[in-house]
């Protein structure tokens, strides 16, 4: 009987016929970025860890457990759910890479834990993650959109928010420690994750934009409304999650500025305009330079007050693409 059911032809992926150049570009960047936690000398942070108070240690373990949960969701549900909607075989491959890298991210938090913490503390944090209402609420919101059969564009919205917004209440803390010269090797590992998430959010947001263009104007308006209302719902959860974690160390307000800043970037990845005004996105400069060390050393003409326009000297070039 089963021979009668028509099934589509099985197709082999041909990387010599790529219909969307972004697939190859992003594949190349993601594979060039590949890393494993074993490459980072986490044990150099053992002494620094001992200088944190008990509360600070517990906060850090919880923050990393929360991040582990999001990476787990993205590895085992999110990226595979997006694969079902892929419009090119190359997109499926990129998503397979993303799914695998999320599994590496999730595992790397366990490397941090086994280097720095005691087993009981780790187990307690995983129990906390299962019981914390705010963490569970954000995972549930995203998982709703990942359910089989749900709207492909809504899946991509949820996924871009996870990649480009929901992680950042957690990423704040290692950047904060690093700005105070604490847990600097751990921060190096987190920066590798942060760089990966930028490409993930970019790519899923890009595929969202390609999908949205094919819709009617009415559908586009509906989808845009959906994106903004989901962002508001997630933001409310993030506010509560942030307060519950960071009130004790007095950092809640600064973390919220970081959330606003990243919510804007998530919206831009989807092709929308940023929402939060500059007055609430002024993140502590120490956090910004922990994120991109050395990037602000050269004062650009438009940013520096009073700096004047100076013509530099051009340098000879060795790359074959530049003729001069």
């Amino acid at each position: 009987m089963k021979d009668f059911a028509p099934r589509p032809v099985a197709r082999a992926i041909n990387w010599n016929r790529v219909t969307d150049d972004k697939d190859l570009e992003v594949w190349n960047r993601l594979t060039a970025n590949f890393w494993l936690p074993e490459k980072v000398p986490l044990s150099n942070d053992v002494q620094s860890w001992a200088t944190l108070t008990d509360d600070e240690q517990q906060l850090t373990i919880r923050v990393f457990t929360g991040l582990t949960l999001l990476d787990t969701v993205q590895a085992s549900v999110g990226a595979p759910a997006l694969m079902a909607d892929a419009t090119t075989p190359h997109e499926e491959s990129v998503l397979a890479n993303i799914a695998f890298m999320e599994a590496v991210h999730a595992k790397s938090y366990s490397s941090i834990f086994s280097t720095l913490c005691a087993t009981e503390e780790i187990d307690a944090a995983f129990r906390w993650a299962e019981e914390d209402p705010h963490l569970q609420a954000k995972a549930a919101k995203i998982l709703d959109d990942y359910a089989p059969g749900s709207d492909p564009l809504k899946k991509k919205i949820a996924s871009t928010f996870l990649e480009s917004f929901l992680f950042y209440s957690g990423f704040y803390l290692p950047m904060y420690w690093s700005s105070r010269a604490k847990l600097t090797n751990t921060a190096d590992l987190i920066r590798l994750i942060i760089r990966d998430e930028a490409v993930h959010g970019y790519y899923i947001g890009y595929k969202f934009q390609r999908g949205l263009e094919r819709e009617t104007e009415a559908r586009r308006a509906e989808i845009k409304d959906y994106a903004f209302s989901l962002l508001f719902e997630l933001y409310e959860i993030e506010e509560r999650y942030t307060a519950a974690l960071y009130d004790g160390v007095g950092l809640t307000e600064d973390v919220k500025r970081f959330l606003h800043y990243n919510a804007n970037k998530a919206l831009m990845n989807l092709g929308f305009e940023p929402l939060f005004p500059d007055s609430v996105t002024d993140v502590n400069p120490a956090i910004m330079s922990a994120l991109s060390p050395n990037a602000d050393e050269n004062h650009d003409f438009f940013s520096g007050s009073g700096s004047s326009y100076v013509i530099g000297k051009s340098v000879a070039t060795e790359d074959e693409d530049w003729d001069f």
Partner: peptide, 18 residues
């Protein structure tokens, strides 16, 4: 900036903020 001997005037992220 280095190759052409002109200043880097500004940097922004993604599509820029207001």
């Amino acid at each position: 900036a280095a190759k052409c001997g002109v200043p880097c005037l500004y940097r922004f992220e993604l599509a820029g903020t207001a």
